[in-house]
Design a binder for these strands. Sequence first.
DNA 1: TGACTTTGTTCTTACGACGAAGAAATCAAA
DNA 2: TTTGATTTCTTCGTCGTAAGAACAAAGTCA
Lengths: 408, 408
Amino acid sequence: MRAGMAVLTVDAAGMRAQNSGLLLNMIWRERQISRAEIARRTELSPSTVSAIVADLEQAGLVRSIGAGVSRGGRRPTLIGFCDEAFSLVGVELGASHVTVVLTDLRGRVRTQSKASHAVRGDPEGSLQKAKELIQECLDAERVPRRSVVGMGVAVPSPVHPASPGKMSPLILPAWKNVDVKEWFETAFDMPVFVDNDANLGALSECFWGAGSGGEDLTYIKLATGIGAGHIIHGDVYRGAGGTAGEIGHIAVDSNGPLCVCGLRGCLVTLIGSTALTERARELMGTRGRKGPTVRDLVEGARAGDAAAKQIIDGMGAWLGIAVGGLLNLLNPAIVVLGGEISSVGELLLDPLRASVRQRALSVSMAETRIVTSALGERAIAVGAATLVLQAALRDRSLFPQQNVGRTA
Amino acid sequence: MRAGMAVLTVDAAGMRAQNSGLLLNMIWRERQISRAEIARRTELSPSTVSAIVADLEQAGLVRSIGAGVSRGGRRPTLIGFCDEAFSLVGVELGASHVTVVLTDLRGRVRTQSKASHAVRGDPEGSLQKAKELIQECLDAERVPRRSVVGMGVAVPSPVHPASPGKMSPLILPAWKNVDVKEWFETAFDMPVFVDNDANLGALSECFWGAGSGGEDLTYIKLATGIGAGHIIHGDVYRGAGGTAGEIGHIAVDSNGPLCVCGLRGCLVTLIGSTALTERARELMGTRGRKGPTVRDLVEGARAGDAAAKQIIDGMGAWLGIAVGGLLNLLNPAIVVLGGEISSVGELLLDPLRASVRQRALSVSMAETRIVTSALGERAIAVGAATLVLQAALRDRSLFPQQNVGRTA
DNA sequence: TGACTTTGTTCTTACGACGAAGAAATCAAA
DNA sequence: TTTGATTTCTTCGTCGTAAGAACAAAGTCA
């Protein structure tokens, strides 16, 4: 057993790296803070703080942003993070679409582009499409390559920690021989990070959404598939084989319909988008030729349509079984529901909470907030970009060197 | 969101602390290793390694243990960890007994003592009993107080990270006003660490049992109560409110019997010791006045008793529902079953695995080993001691100073 | 106005890791 | 046995980083 040796050895340079990384994170988090305040909080000496801040300023990562309020003496110089200094690329390969965002270092989307594409069956086409969209985004903002930190890619498959670019051959057989990480690294010559879509939704929520400020959260993506992502101690938790959070195939109804995975009564067969729209067609009738969509369901429920509400209620009840187990097993601080259907908000949360209450210890429930996402449909693509940000905030050297001293 | 600032600032002294901690861990793990080999693996310079090893030797933590085999030149001096230099106290407060062990730094039990006691309802008496047993152990080995690193205490209740000495008032109401950590610290004047019993079982398995070598594992304690403990990245994971792993009250049968917790069909009402022995009485008849015990059940099953096997089969089936959910949610590398009943081994594992297979994705199953514990009934008390070891291996200063240079 | 605070910089000092050089121990081949 | 190469480990001087003291600058408050 390794008794906590994640830490590597340190020499003088490593010492500086560690301290400057710490300062960079603090400045990023606080948005504005004085050298004196940094010194107080970190217990670093004022001289050291000054030296490191000068370093970071030189690298174009932080800058002075005027004077703060006096505490009875000279007014402090506030230091702020250069949110705009670099860009991040986020790519979402969904089941039926490709979304690309270009964000700054504060998760704000500068440009986005999206296209429908049958991703599951067509790896080469999907990747090519993604490449076009990315180039489009980069061109639109005239972003020079050297100001891009890297690229995050969300994929609709578990990702094994040992081979971060490969999909699961069981879930996406057509992608068997493709290495997404390598492909994009070759295509764009920048660091590429790949992870599962629900994991990146969770990261997104942890940085920019309901979980910001915390370190432990579970995100549940409600869409064609049902998947969850865990953030534990501020990090995506992937499990031994990368399949942590694959809750779509938890069997919640032993008499339920047969699933493609071979089991019976899987969550996804009961509350996946397909099941929901199918049920909506039964209860709400067809709308035009194609039958009701998830959007119709959301709008119906909001408008007070009884059938729609009934479907959402049922969904909450089923989902509650899985969430109840989740609370007892993991006791996360926050559970965030994402995916289009989650926009019904309380209409889903109410029956869900009721169902959970029947299945989870009151102790676990008391510590857990269950909420819906407020980040919208770009959440996962932004989460992909965030994966790059997280890596760079930990390892400053990922930020490209700005040869000229100009800050952006 | 905190982007990985668990690390504190470093100065020259901190640099030394970090590197020497790393070396201490490496020596502990490897059991014997030369300075040269350490330098190669850590990429520290030979001179630094020598200096640090001298430090550790001075502190009585490591020592030379002869020469190793030559690699074509001077033979290396092997350095080994002083397993016997210090002692650890481990206390298990069970539902109906108190167990105390005194171990060395390799998890070997030097002395143990155990007493039956109704812990749930009698805090003061239990603590007093524990104190006597601890004193007994210390006296038996003539262990001087200064060679004891600290004390770990396992309690049959979730422990909230914010108040590590307090029990959950919902589960152990009689212990409402007791702070276990404070009580023992006052009684023995040494560092005290408190955690939930299943969490410590997990730690025990991670260090000394099925999980040794790995960093991610889930332990399930099958006894009067059913609880799980997770080790994630080598650390006990407690969740937001300390109730992670409280799987006893996962509702697996909506038509099941009513549980004290107010829910219906909780795991504990179906496979807790009470339920098992009750069912054994029905199927196997009474043995003497008191009816069959868990031990009878184990022996019966091993001897081929059909009724006993049937009960174990049923247990595996129910447990599989929870474990299936666990695999999909967390995808641990190993699941270890502990508690007396787990000694039936394959007789329980077979039906369990079959049940899990019906509920978990084959992907998750493929990466997870499900096994029974081999550590025996002292596992949890030893885990409590291990909690102290883990802390000390991370923070060398927890090892008491040995004023005189004598190594043990 | 003047005493006191707070901020931030400069310069010296201390500490720990590194690297070169060397001593000791061993192997291998002549 | 001798000689040279190799490996291990220590010694000593150098360098980089953080700490600390002293100081200058910019405020506050009475």
